[in-house]
């Protein structure tokens, strides 16, 4: 059986990209030193996983979600609570950090799916804020803003010590590659096309027999699950965190990552995650101007290149190449 002809060019490109990504992870991982670089990459990959989820729900389902950061936090707290309070195995805890946000996402997505874009954005914003308030207030489980979660056990699934920076790099790298494969697969199949159709026009999509509400709910749940996975990995990576990490600014950062990258490409989302994570490290004076500059950047991209910065750059590069030929 042959792979479909139409998808083959983009699917093949995506598969090559996956190989390149895996190779990159492998190379960095094999570096003997460079702990600072690896730490940067670990967080880029963690945020990248959450950003890929957001890319799916926004770029493909057409649903603006401003609670992705809160789902991330939900995953982090689930993981931390299970490990610290109930001594659950770390791998199971990580699984729960995917499952619980996915379940919550699934529950809220059905009623949310009926809303038009700006009402949906408001609703997810409200939901995200409510969750961040809960994170700060339910101190018995989360520790609140102070002290938060302290000294979570080092990642050791089934007793294997994988908590060092080098090991976490492998763990996060593997997770990222797997997530990328799943995302790319989804995009190149009928459900991916159906989601793009839904984003473009729900009524014509429905009139072709596409169950629009079901797919919107499914993709929202999947995105929440991916955010939760990021959160779980974050918990093991930082081992100490508090509720201020998951406030609304984080959800907006995730959205910025997707917009800087590409609204419809998980690769763009990953690139955006890398940029947003790494950039502040280079621009030390950026701190007070970070919010302003990201806001200007995001607005500029939305006004002039609503498909995302990276995809506009890519399209521009292709035009240049064509002109040169």
């Amino acid at each position: 059986m042959s792979a479909p002809a139409s998808g083959v060019s983009s699917y093949r490109r995506d598969m090559i990209g996956i190989v390149v990504l895996a190779a990159f992870v492998f190379c960095i991982g094999s570096l003997a030193s460079g702990s600072y670089l690896k730490t940067m990459l670990i967080f880029s990959m963690i945020y990248g996983i959450a950003a890929i989820g957001l890319c799916l729900v926004f770029g493909y389902g057409g649903q603006i979600s401003l609670c992705q950061g809160a789902m991330f936090g939900l995953g982090a707290y689930t993981c931390a609570a299970l490990v610290q309070r109930w001594r659950v195995d770390h791998l199971l805890a990580l699984g729960a950090s995917i499952a619980l946000p996915a379940l919550v996402g699934w529950l809220v997505a059905r009623p949310l799916g009926r809303l038009s874009s700006h009402y949906l954005a408001m609703a997810t914003l409200a939901l995200g804020l409510i969750l961040s308030i809960l994170f700060a207030q339910v101190r018995t489980i989360t520790g609140g803003a102070d002290p938060g979660v302290i000294d979570l056990a080092s990642f050791a699934p089934f007793g294997m010590p994988l908590g060092t920076t080098s090991s976490m790099h492998w763990v996060c790298g593997v997770c990222l590659v797997v997530v990328m494969v799943l995302a790319v697969n989804l995009i190149n199949t009928r459900i991916g096309r159906a989601l793009r159709a839904i984003r473009s026009g729900e009524v014509p999509a429905a009139c072709l027999g596409i169950d629009t509400s079901k797919y919107k709910v499914d993709v929202f749940a999947a995105a929440s699950g991916l955010a939760g996975l990021g959160g779980g990995l974050y918990a093991f990576a930082t081992r100490t965190f508090n509720s201020s990490a998951f406030e609304i600014g984080f959800s907006i950062d995730l959205l910025t990552m997707v917009l800087i990258g590409s609204v419809r490409s998980p690769w763009g989302a990953m690139a955006g995650a890398l940029v947003i994570t790494v950039l502040p490290a280079f621009l030390e004076h950026l701190d007070r101007f970070r919010l302003l500059s990201f806001g200007l950047l995001m607005t500029g991209v939305m006004v002039f290149m609503p498909d995302g910065l990276t995809s506009a750059a890519y399209a521009g590069a292709r035009r240049l190449v064509k002109r040169a030929q």
């Binding site: 989804l186 199949t189 009928r190 459900i191 096309r193 159906a194 159709a197 999509a205 072709l208 027999g209 596409i210 797919y215 499914d218 993709v219 999947a222």
Partner: peptide, 11 residues
């Protein structure tokens, strides 16, 4: 997209 329902595979 028109041929969507010729398949059954889920998410």
């Amino acid at each position: 997209v028109g041929a969507h329902n010729r398949a059954r595979s889920g998410f």
